[in-house]
Each structure stands twice: as structure tokens, then as C-alpha cells.
Amino acid sequence: MAEFFQTTIHDYFNYWVYVILMMIGLWAVIAKNNLIKKLIGLSIFQTAIILFYVSIGVKDGASIPILHHHDPAAHAVSHEESHHKEGHKGDDSAAHKEPGDDKGDNAEAHAVNPDLIANPLPHVLMLTAIVVGVATLGVALALSQRIFKEFGTLEESELLEQLKGGNVDG
């Protein structure tokens, strides 16, 4: 049981959360009769996608995707290596590219280790998606306001009834 928990829930926890959240949103979009409630469902659905994207960029033990300003490789080097580098510390960051390090290939010694920095790409994609999501939600709310103005209701069944009866004004 504990092993089952470890392999199915613990390691895949983020996917469980995203699937459950997404299904809550999907259910609201399908089953709810009120347009505003459908919009809430749509927003929950969107949040689930955002959560999914951000969670796949997570790396265990990694730092945020912002490098050290003067020494980009500072995250990536082990403790003694960073101690070894203290001598260079006063130099401009360009100095790190110059050869002369006794470690051989200097570019490699100062390269950022990707395993220690979280994946920036999902963050970028979701950053714009969140703001665009707010803007498009605004459009959706504007449309619902307009529908309410025209029909006096936001219930889907009543709207369909009115449309069937040809009771469309304006």
C-alpha cells in the first residue's frame, strides 16, 4: 500500500491535481446552466492547465530561473569550486570567459548546470497565458453583460427558449 502510494500518488501528485481540477472545470462547463458558472468552470480549467505547465518545469533541488548577476555559474559550482573562484571575484563578468583556468576547458568550468536551475520555458508560457486569460475573461464577462441586457437572463435554458420563440429584440 505504501509502495502503491509512493509510485502512483506521490511521484505523480501534480498530474492528479491537474486532472482533478480540470475535470471539475469541465463538469461545470458542461453541466451548469448559468453562463457565469460556466465561465467559472472555464477559469478553473485554465488554472489546471497553468498548474500542469508550471509543475512540469519543476526540478528537484533546483533554484529559481534567475542567475547570479555577476557570476552566472555561481549556482552550478560546488562549494570548493566556488571557493577556488574567490580570486576572480573582483573581475568583471567578462573575465570568466578568458582562458587561463587550471581546470582546462574554462567555458565548461563556468557553464551553468541546467539541473540546478528550474526550467524557465513553462514559466514564460504561463506568464503570458495568465494575463491573456484575464483579458479574454474580461471579454467573456462583457459578452455575458450584453446578453443579460438583451435577454434579462443568463440561464442557458431560458436563453434557448427565448431564441426558439423568436423573442429576439434589437
Binding site: T8, Y12, Y15, K59, D60
Partner: peptide, 16 residues
């Protein structure tokens, strides 16, 4: 989900 990489795996296809 069972085919997905585990949460926080630094060598998952999306990361590496």
C-alpha cells in the same frame, strides 16, 4: 499519467 515523468525529475523530456 503513469507514462509521465515523475514530479521534479530534472531529466524529464520537458526539462532535458
Amino acid at each position: 499519467v503513469s507514462d509521465f515523468p515523475a514530479f521534479g525529475d530534472p531529466h524529464s523530456p520537458a526539462n532535458a
